[in-house]
Amino acid sequence: MATKTFYVVQPYVLGKRGALKAGQAREARSAADAERLAQRLSATGAGAIAFSREVDPESDDAEPPILIASYGRVPEGAFEAG
């Protein structure tokens, strides 16, 4: 079983009435890139999280996500929902 590591950044923006909403998730090349991107996106939005996830492309089995970084405001439990 060969796994692949995916690095993902999930930004959050303020919606109507100040509610946090998920923006467009982005894939990064490495953990360091994901952390930098999350920090940069949090400066222009409400916040962002960066995480990695091991996935077996053949079976679509995935390990639980691993938090790399969290910046700014993110919804409570956002990482657990990822």
Rank of each mutant, 00 (worst) to 15 (best):
L67E: 03
F79Q: 00
E54K: 01
F51T: 06
K21G: 04
A28S: 09
S52I: 08
E76M: 13
Q39A: 14
Y7N: 09
P57H: 05
V9T: 03
G77T: 10
A22W: 05
A78Q: 01
D33H: 07
L67T: 00
Q10W: 05
G47A: 06
Q10S: 13
F6Y: 14
V13M: 08
A62G: 02
A50R: 00
G82K: 13
A69M: 04
L41H: 02
P11F: 13
V8K: 12
P57N: 09
P75D: 08
R17P: 04
E54L: 07
G45V: 03
L37E: 09
S30P: 00
I68H: 04
S30G: 11
P64L: 06
A43Q: 11
P64C: 06
P75F: 03
P65S: 05
G23V: 03
G15M: 03
V8H: 13
M1H: 01
V55F: 00
G72I: 08
R53K: 12
S52D: 07
D60P: 02
A25V: 14
V8G: 07
A62P: 02
V55T: 07
A25C: 14
E54Q: 00
S59T: 09
A69N: 09
G18A: 13
P64W: 06
G15L: 07
L14E: 12
V8F: 15
G77A: 08
R26F: 14
P57K: 02
R17W: 12
L14N: 11
Q39Y: 08
S70P: 02
D56F: 00
Q24I: 12
P64A: 11
A62Y: 01
P75K: 05
G45N: 15
A25Q: 15
A32Y: 08
G23C: 05
R73I: 12
A19Y: 14
K21I: 11
A69W: 05
E54D: 11
A19P: 08
V9Q: 10
A31D: 14
L20W: 01
G18Q: 05
K16P: 04
F79W: 00
Q24V: 13
A31R: 09
E63R: 05
T3H: 05
Y7R: 08
S70N: 01
A28M: 07
G82N: 10
A32P: 04
S70K: 01
D56N: 00
A25Y: 12
R26K: 14
V9Y: 14
T5P: 00
R17H: 11
I66C: 09
V8E: 15
K4E: 15
A46D: 02
R26C: 10
T5L: 15
A2C: 06
E35I: 07
L67V: 00
R29D: 15
A43Y: 05
G18S: 06
S70F: 01
D56E: 03
E35S: 10
I49H: 03
D33E: 15
